[in-house]
């Protein structure tokens, strides 16, 4: 299966498989102007990779409230599909909204991609 790459003016999305786990990398600025491409990308990533996902947010420049909503929907969808979803982010970054909204205490957040992949139940 080939990898999935999407670029907009201000953001880049990529999906690749690591065994049973899909690794999604979101880079750049996630504001409402990229809402539709991001939603489409996440849909396709689910179709290709299944519900076990790691989403890497380390290279984000901005994460707005709507994009946060999309991540939360992604987590809900993963859970409903019997899967597992982990985020990769650090607190003092563009992804700080995860802590402000209380999501970081509910959705597993890791500081590196390796840790996240290692923690995924499908990996074990």
């Amino acid at each position: 299966m080939s990898d999935l790459h999407v670029s907009t003016d201000s953001a880049q999305f990529a999906a690749e498989r690591h065994g049973e786990i899909g690794l999604l990398k979101l880079k750049g600025t996630l504001d409402y102007t990229v809402r539709q491409p991001l939603e489409d990308f996440l849909d396709q990533a689910f179709t290709r990779c299944g519900p076990d996902l790691v989403i890497d947010l380390l290279q984000l420049d901005l994460l707005d409230s709507r994009s946060t909503g999309l991540l939360v929907n992604c987590w809900k969808r993963s859970r409903e599909g019997g899967g597992w979803l982990g985020l990769v982010a650090v607190q003092r970054s563009a992804a700080r909204v995860l802590w402000i909204t209380g999501l970081a205490s509910r959705i597993p957040v890791f500081t590196t991609v390796e840790e996240a992949l290692a923690a995924a139940p499908a990996h074990q």
Partner: peptide, 13 residues
């Protein structure tokens, strides 16, 4: 609500 402070390319904070 966030419409007061958020805009494309600008972080909420």
């Amino acid at each position: 609500t966030d419409g007061l402070i958020e805009r494309p390319g600008r972080d909420l904070y």
